[in-house]
């Protein structure tokens, strides 16, 4: 091999397929649709129940502050997730790991707050046979907690991969996929917060 050949730059690496990102977008879209369907059932049942002159939720059954706190926690976690993406873009894996850990703490906190909120509410799932409100509320918020758990598992696996050096500014598909799913978790909660906790 002559010297001129050796002086050539290495061949460009073939582009990595963005399978994880594509799969995550599809799965997130399906999850969001699942919640849209639940919201559709909730809103139509609420309209029918109120039209029949039946109380939907008992007055004062759901206090607003815990729901607002959860919204704030999730908004903060969106910030830390964006920090993860920016850090990995700058090849700053140390910052990315710190931000992933903080996001997981926020996520764990959301689970804790959800359970606290359920205990704080003055309603049981089967209290009022004439209204589906409590049953649908527990179904929707329970399903959302499951989505939070899935998101946390995804972030944990991403963090482990980052810890062992898989991600950098050129290859951060897993980070962006985990972030996308987490943002969809937050988007779904924002609808829950408005449609169930605020407007009831």
């Amino acid at each position: 091999m002559d010297a001129e050949m050796l002086a050539l730059p290495p061949a460009a690496e073939a582009p990595r397929p963005r399978t994880l990102m594509v799969g995550t977008v599809l799965a997130s879209a399906s999850s969001v649709m699942f919640f849209f369907a639940l919201f559709g059932i909730y809103i139509s049942q609420r309209q029918q129940t109120r039209a029949a002159g039946i109380e939907w939720f008992p007055e004062g059954a759901i206090r607003l502050p815990p729901g607002g706190m959860m919204m704030m926690t999730l908004v903060l976690s969106a910030g830390t997730m964006a920090w993860v993406q920016q850090a990995i873009k700058n090849d700053d894996r140390r910052s990315a790991l710190i931000a992933l850990a903080i996001t997981m703490i926020f996520g764990g906190s959301v689970i804790n707050q959800t359970v606290f909120y359920w205990n704080d509410m003055q309603i049981g799932i089967n209290d009022n046979p004439l209204s589906d409100a409590a049953m649908l509320m527990f179904t929707i918020t329970g399903a959302h907690m499951l989505m939070v758990i899935v998101g946390l598992v995804f972030i944990f696996l991403t963090a482990m991969r980052a810890l062992f050096g898989q991600y950098n500014s050129q290859q951060a598909d897993g980070i962006h996929a985990a972030a996308f799913f987490w943002y969809s978790v937050i988007a779904v909660y924002s609808v829950i917060w408005f449609a169930i906790y605020i407007t009831k």
Binding site: L26, A29, S30, S31, M33, F34, F35, F36, A37, L38, I41, I125, D132, M135, L136, F138, T139, G142, A143
Partner: peptide, 17 residues
């Protein structure tokens, strides 16, 4: 994936009820 998610939502509500 979009339409069957709606179906699964219905099934979840029925199951919980």
């Amino acid at each position: 994936m979009l339409s069957m998610a709606v179906l699964i939502a219905n099934l979840v509500v029925d199951y919980v009820a």
